[in-house]
């Protein structure tokens, strides 16, 4: 009897979920009036790159599949209420796509988390990847990189009221949160900090907001995004203690595509789009951009 009643209750919840098709559209995340505008990109419709198998395949299919992060505000972010992507990494991906001859409608976004990036690129799940992807030699064994388009550095995010954490030298004995299995963790351990790890940065930030950890650590870009997303509550220390050159990850042997992407990055850095994109995204945190790095063509 009792179970039957429980089931009836559960079913009504399910039914409610199904019926709840009446809902709001639009977004609560809309930019405030007067905020810097995102640049727009001219689609290079006549572009051809027949020497790149990835490009040829994407062109034939009429869509370009780009891997990105979904949970990094103002960097690689998916606005669930509107089904759109935004952020600095997303802008970089869009400007490159435009130069490769793809309209925004032709981009097929795919969320790929840190641990699966190499697999997704080498397995051909995505055409290229833009999402806080640090260039290093280990990764160059399985994928190749265009860029760097930004040089981030590991930094600390703390509550605005915090005064005793001033940089990497003051975290001894403090509890610092990051995402499981990231290199940031090793560095904190060697500096004498206590570490806790979750599988998303939002979980870490939540722990920071509830005072359960003293700081969150990872690339300053990611931290700036969270600071901008929780206005007035958090601050980024601003003394990076590592160098993380971000690249666009793509297939290991596709030199033609790599060169084309490098050209595209260069053009948008030179015409001011890069700066505009930063100001309208991560710039909202109040922190200035790092200087534009020189490309590493190989």
């Amino acid at each position: 009897m009792r179970t039957r009643r429980t089931i009836a209750a559960a079913m009504s919840v399910l039914a409610l979920t199904a019926v709840a098709a009446c809902g709001k559209s639009g977004s609560p995340n809309a930019a405030p009036p007067g905020a810097p505008q995102l640049p727009t990109y001219q689609v290079n419709t006549g572009f051809k790159l027949d020497s790149s198998p990835t490009w040829v395949k994407a062109k034939q299919a009429g869509k370009l599949t780009i891997g990105a992060k979904a949970d990094q505000p103002f960097l690689g972010f998916e606005d669930l209420t509107t089904n759109t992507r935004n952020g600095f990494d997303i802008e970089i991906a869009k400007m490159v796509a435009a130069d490769l001859g793809f309209t925004p409608d032709q981009i097929n976004w795919k969320t790929i988390v840190t641990a699966n990036r190499e697999t997704a690129i080498s397995g051909g799940q995505i055409d290229y990847y833009v999402g806080t992807y640090t260039i290093n030699d280990e990764r160059k064994k399985s994928v190749s990189f265009a860029g760097p388009y930004y040089v981030a550095g590991q930094d600390l995010l703390v509550l605005k009221s915090n005064t005793d954490i001033t940089g990497s030298d003051s975290i001894k004995g403090k509890t610092v949160c990051s995402v499981a299995g990231s290199t940031s963790i090793d560095r904190i351990n060697s500096l004498g900090g206590k570490t806790v790890t979750y599988d998303t940065y939002a979980q870490c930030v939540d722990k920071l907001l509830t005072n359960e950890v003293d700081a969150v650590t990872t690339d300053d870009t990611i931290l700036k995004g969270f600071a901008a997303k929780n206005p007035g509550k958090l601050k980024v220390i601003g003394k990076p203690f590592s160098q993380e050159p971000y690249g666009i990850g793509l297939g290991k042997d596709d030199k033609a595509l790599r060169d084309a992407i490098n050209n595209s990055i260069k053009a948008h850095e030179d015409n001011g789009d890069w700066k505009k994109a930063y100001d309208a995204t991560l710039g909202l945190s109040g922190s200035a951009a790092a200087p534009i790095p020189t490309l590493d063509r190989y």
Binding site: G23, L80, T81
Partner: peptide, 16 residues
Amino acid sequence: DPFQYTAVQQLIVNGL
């Protein structure tokens, strides 16, 4: 608030 948006409801249904 997020649960009020059709896109979010759609996300939940798709997940289901």
